[in-house]
């Protein structure tokens, strides 16, 4: 994955900036011509910098931005500040009650020490195709609130992931919060992730949300980005037997790498979906 040119495990030099307000942070990003990067939990960015595959001129630490904190429920929606750490999500009774999928997914995200630092906004923004939270956002129909020099905008998670680590966030925008619809009593959820080792990135994972509107199914670890398959969802809506829907998986351009070929990933995605459906909340 990385070409070894020399000793490459100390980050290149950069400015460390720690603005106190959202406006100040955006101004810093905007003035850097895209060379600066926001620092949320740093649990993915720091390794990339240590590998010298990321070499920003400056890191804008978001730690002091009160605007990016907090969990609040507004009727049928719950807003989670981008700088909320995984550990805070797991400790929030409100999140656990409103978003059962979080309780199912969080134990699979790396390990305790990573969850103590990693943030929801960070993982949503990075868009690692094998990460859990972007897929949850798709399955739940989350909305991503972005702030930039021209103000704020809200974008559907469905519109957010554009390619391999590529998102709709502009370099001078920050994710402020993610808004999720609160689970209703008739909603059902399923989650299954296949990893050889606990806490690893998924070889394949599936997230299912079933509401009165039907199924929303998101996959992770299978392609260049987290994704949904509307045709597969439609098939599940009309026939609950998953076997009859699995052929829709071939629409995915599955990733092949040293851990699993594309064909194996397709097979594992089918298993993940099947088991996610078998394990739906009651």
């Amino acid at each position: 994955m990385f070409s070894v040119m020399g000793g490459t495990m100390k980050a290149p030099d950069f400015d460390y900036l720690r603005p106190a307000t959202l406006d100040a942070a955006i101004a810093l990003l905007a003035s850097s011509d895209g060379d600066a990067m926001p620092l949320a939990g740093g649990q993915s960015l720091m390794p990339m910098m240590n590998f010298r595959v990321a070499s920003p001129s400056a890191l804008i630490d978001l730690a002091d931005l009160a605007e990016l904190r907090g969990i609040s429920r507004d009727g049928s929606s719950i807003r989670i500040g981008a700088m909320t750490r995984y550990a805070e999500l797991a400790a929030s009774a409100e999140v656990m009650a409103a978003l059962p999928l979080f309780g199912m997914a969080l134990p699979h995200i790396a390990h305790d020490a990573i969850r103590n630092r990693g943030t929801l906004g960070g993982t949503i923004a990075l868009g690692d195709p094998a990460a859990e939270m972007p897929a949850l956002a798709l399955a739940l129909g989350a909305k991503i609130e972005l702030a930039g020099p021209d103000g704020t905008r809200v974008i559907d998670a469905d519109e957010f992931y554009l390619g391999y680590y590529e998102t709709a966030r502009a370099p001078d925008e920050l994710i402020v919060a993610i808004h999720y619809p609160v689970a209703l009593s008739d909603h059902r959820f399923g989650f299954h992730e296949l990893t050889q080792r606990h806490g690893d990135y998924a070889l394949a994972g599936a997230v299912v949300a079933r509401t009165a509107q039907g199924h929303r199914v998101a996959f992770f670890g299978v392609a260049d980005r987290p994704l949904r398959l509307p045709a597969l969802e439609q098939a599940l809506n009309t026939n609950p037997d998953v076997q009859s829907a699995l052929h829709h998986l071939s629409a995915i351009a599955f990733t092949g790498d040293v851990k699993a070929s594309a064909a194996t990933r397709q097979r594992l995605a089918a298993v993940a979906l099947t088991r996610a459906l078998q394990g739906m909340t009651q």
Binding site: M1, F2, S3, V4, P47, F51, Q196, R197, H198, G199, D200, Y201, D257, V258, K259
Partner: peptide, 24 residues
Amino acid sequence: CHYSPEGQMLNATMADYMVPMAAE
């Protein structure tokens, strides 16, 4: 240790080269 056809080791990180961990 996986290699590309050109002889590059493809999994030269702790995230990609899998060692046994406690859970398994």
